[in-house]
Measured scan of single mutants.
Amino acid sequence: TTLHFDLDGKKLQYTGVSEEIARLVEELKRRGVDLKEIVRILEELLK
């Protein structure tokens, strides 16, 4: 799965993300978590 974000005018793309992580990101968005925080979490998970 590939995730795309537009953060402060920067286009971020994460490829090869598992379905689980993609679902987690969608859930965080639904809960109103700040996009910067979501990206920070995502980068930690993908290390």
Score class of each variant (00 low, 15 high):
Thr1Ile: 15
Thr1Gln: 14
Thr1Gly: 10
Thr1Leu: 15
Thr1Phe: 15
Thr1Lys: 11
Thr1Ala: 09
Thr1Arg: 07
Thr1Val: 15
Thr1Asn: 11
Thr2Lys: 05
Thr2Ile: 12
Thr2Arg: 02
Thr2Gln: 07
Thr2Glu: 08
Thr2His: 07
Leu3Met: 07
Leu3Trp: 01
Leu3Gly: 02
Leu3Ala: 01
Leu3Cys: 02
Leu3Thr: 01
Leu3Ile: 12
Leu3Ser: 00
His4Asn: 13
His4Ser: 12
His4Phe: 11
His4Met: 09
Phe5Pro: 00
Phe5Tyr: 03
Phe5Glu: 01
Phe5Asp: 01
Asp6Trp: 09
Asp6Leu: 07
Asp6Ser: 03
Asp6Cys: 05
Asp6Thr: 06
Asp6Glu: 12
Asp6Pro: 00
Leu7His: 05
Leu7Asn: 04
Leu7Tyr: 09
Leu7Glu: 04
Leu7Ala: 04
Leu7Ser: 03
Leu7Arg: 00
Leu7Cys: 03
Leu7Pro: 00
Asp8Gly: 07
Asp8Phe: 03
Asp8Ala: 04
Asp8Arg: 00
Asp8Gln: 04
Asp8Leu: 03
Gly9Leu: 02
Gly9Thr: 03
Gly9Pro: 01
Gly9Glu: 06
Gly9Ala: 02
Gly9Asn: 05
Lys10Pro: 03
Lys10Trp: 08
Lys10Val: 15
Lys11Glu: 13
Lys11Gly: 07
Lys11Asp: 13
Lys11Ile: 11
Leu12Gly: 01
Leu12Phe: 11
Leu12Ala: 04
Leu12Cys: 06
Leu12Ser: 05
Leu12Trp: 06
Gln13Asn: 10
Gln13Val: 15
Gln13Ser: 14
Gln13Asp: 09
Gln13Leu: 13
Gln13Gly: 04
Tyr14Glu: 00
Tyr14Val: 04
Tyr14Leu: 03
Tyr14Met: 03
Tyr14Gly: 00
Tyr14His: 01
Thr15Arg: 06
Thr15Asp: 11
Thr15His: 13
Thr15Phe: 14
Thr15Met: 10
Thr15Ser: 13
Gly16His: 14
Gly16Met: 07
Gly16Val: 05
Gly16Pro: 03
Gly16Asn: 14
Gly16Thr: 04
Val17Glu: 01
Val17Arg: 00
Val17Gly: 01
Val17Met: 04
Val17Thr: 02
Val17His: 01
Val17Asp: 01
Ser18His: 06
Ser18Lys: 07
Ser18Val: 05
Ser18Ile: 04
Glu19Val: 12
Glu19His: 14
Glu19Gln: 12
Glu19Arg: 08
Glu19Thr: 11
Glu19Asn: 11
Glu19Phe: 09
Glu19Cys: 04
Glu20Ser: 13
Glu20Gln: 11
Glu20Leu: 04
Glu20His: 10
Glu20Tyr: 06
Glu20Asn: 05
Glu20Lys: 10
Ile21Thr: 14
Ile21Lys: 03
Ile21Trp: 07
Ile21Arg: 02
Ile21Pro: 02
Ile21Cys: 03
Ile21His: 15
Ala22Gln: 10
Ala22Tyr: 13
Ala22Glu: 10
Ala22Leu: 09
Ala22Thr: 10
Ala22Val: 15
Ala22Asn: 08
Ala22Met: 09
Ala22Trp: 08
Arg23Val: 12
Arg23His: 13
Arg23Met: 13
Arg23Leu: 15
Arg23Gln: 14
Arg23Thr: 15
Arg23Phe: 13
Leu24Tyr: 14
Leu24Arg: 15
Leu24Asp: 09
Val25Ser: 03
Val25Ala: 05
Val25Met: 07
Val25Ile: 11
Val25Asp: 00
Val25Pro: 00
Val25Asn: 01
Glu26Tyr: 09
Glu26Ser: 08
Glu26Phe: 10
Glu27Leu: 08
Glu27Trp: 05
Glu27Gly: 08
Glu27Pro: 00
Glu27Gln: 07
Leu28Gly: 02
Leu28Met: 14
Leu28Glu: 05
Leu28Phe: 10
Leu28Ser: 03
Leu28Trp: 09
Lys29Gln: 13
Lys29Arg: 14
Lys29Ile: 14
Lys29Asn: 11
Lys29Tyr: 14
Lys29Thr: 14
Lys29Phe: 14
Arg30Asp: 14
Arg30Trp: 13
Arg30Glu: 11
Arg30Asn: 13
Arg31Ser: 13
Arg31Tyr: 07
Arg31Met: 12
Gly32Met: 07
Gly32Pro: 05
Gly32Trp: 03
Gly32Ala: 10
Gly32Ser: 06
Gly32His: 11
Val33Ile: 14
Val33Trp: 09
Val33Thr: 15
Val33His: 08
Val33Cys: 04
Val33Met: 14
Asp34Lys: 06
Asp34Gln: 11
Asp34Thr: 09
Asp34Ile: 10
Asp34His: 08
Asp34Phe: 06
Asp34Gly: 08
Leu35Lys: 07
Leu35Arg: 04
Leu35Pro: 12
Leu35Val: 14
Leu35His: 11
Leu35Trp: 03
Lys36Met: 12
Lys36Cys: 04
Lys36Tyr: 09
Lys36Leu: 10
Lys36Gly: 11
Lys36Pro: 09
Lys36Arg: 14
Lys36Asp: 08
Lys36Thr: 14
Glu37Ala: 08
Glu37His: 07
Glu37Val: 07
Glu37Ile: 07
Glu37Met: 07
Glu37Asp: 12
Glu37Asn: 07
Ile38Ser: 01
Ile38Phe: 00
Ile38Gln: 06
Ile38Arg: 02
Ile38Asn: 00
Ile38Trp: 00
Ile38Cys: 03
Val39Asp: 00
Val39Gly: 01
Val39Ile: 14
Val39His: 05
Val39Asn: 02
Val39Ala: 03
Arg40Asn: 12
Arg40Glu: 08
Arg40Asp: 10
Arg40Val: 14
Arg40Phe: 14
Arg40Ala: 12
Arg40Gly: 14
Arg40Ile: 08
Ile41Pro: 00
Ile41Gln: 15
Ile41Phe: 08
Ile41Ala: 09
Ile41Val: 12
Ile41Gly: 04
Ile41Trp: 07
Leu42Glu: 00
Leu42Ile: 07
Leu42Gly: 00
Leu42Cys: 04
Leu42Val: 10
Leu42Trp: 00
Leu42Asn: 00
Leu42Pro: 00
Leu42Tyr: 01
Leu42Thr: 05
Leu42Met: 07
Glu43Tyr: 03
Glu43Gly: 04
Glu43Asn: 08
Glu43Lys: 03
Glu44Leu: 07
Glu44Thr: 09
Glu44Val: 09
Glu44Gly: 08
Glu44Asp: 13
Glu44Pro: 03
Leu45Gln: 11
Leu45Arg: 07
Leu45His: 10
Leu45Ser: 12
Leu45Asp: 04
Leu45Tyr: 10
Leu46Asn: 04
Leu46Pro: 02
Leu46Tyr: 05
Leu46His: 05
Leu46Thr: 05
Leu46Glu: 03
Lys47Thr: 10
Lys47Ile: 10
Lys47Pro: 09
Lys47Trp: 11
Lys47Ser: 11
Lys47Gln: 12
Lys47Tyr: 14
Lys47Asp: 07
